[in-house]
């Protein structure tokens, strides 16, 4: 009878856990309360794991250089881009964007890019922070 995992288990008892810690060790009674405390310097948050260089995050859009050619809409697999024909511009729905970055490649004016921002969660998929218009 062999139980090869037992030595590993016993040695892990004396090592640091492998988990990346949450910003707060435990769920605080109120998140805003915790953030206030952090701002006042009373509490500390665990630093986040750094995002890698190539990470594809939230869309950025330069409305001024956009010429309204709508090529990005043609390649967007997720219907995340909507045309605004009246002004010949486009609008991005971040909640539906799948961050493939195909639109940034086809854009003739390079007015699109994917930023490293990845905290895009919201309870409402049409939250104003999740609609990129400019």
């Amino acid at each position: 009878m062999t139980f090869p995992i037992v030595p590993d288990l016993l040695s892990s008892l004396f090592k640091k856990p492998n988990t990346n810690p949450f910003p707060a060790p435990q769920l605080p009674p109120t998140v805003t309360g915790l953030l206030d405390e952090v701002n006042q310097g009373k509490a500390e948050l665990n630093p986040p794991v750094p995002a890698p260089e190539r990470l594809r995050g939230k869309m950025t859009y330069n409305r001024e250089t956009c010429i309204g050619c709508n090529l990005c809409i043609k390649v967007c697999p997720a219907h995340a881009i909507e045309a605004i024909p009246a002004v010949k511009k486009v609008r991005f729905y971040v909640s539906q964007c799948i961050q493939c970055g195909q639109c940034t490649e086809i854009c003739p004016k390079q007015c699109l890019a994917l930023s490293g921002e990845f905290l895009n969660a919201s309870h409402d998929r049409y939250d104003r922070s999740l609609i990129v218009e400019r």
Partner: peptide
């Protein structure tokens, strides 16, 4: 907690 530590996790309070 002990089980979590042996599995290299933080575990519950």
């Amino acid at each position: 907690v002990l089980a979590a530590r042996m599995q290299a996790r933080i575990g519950p309070p």
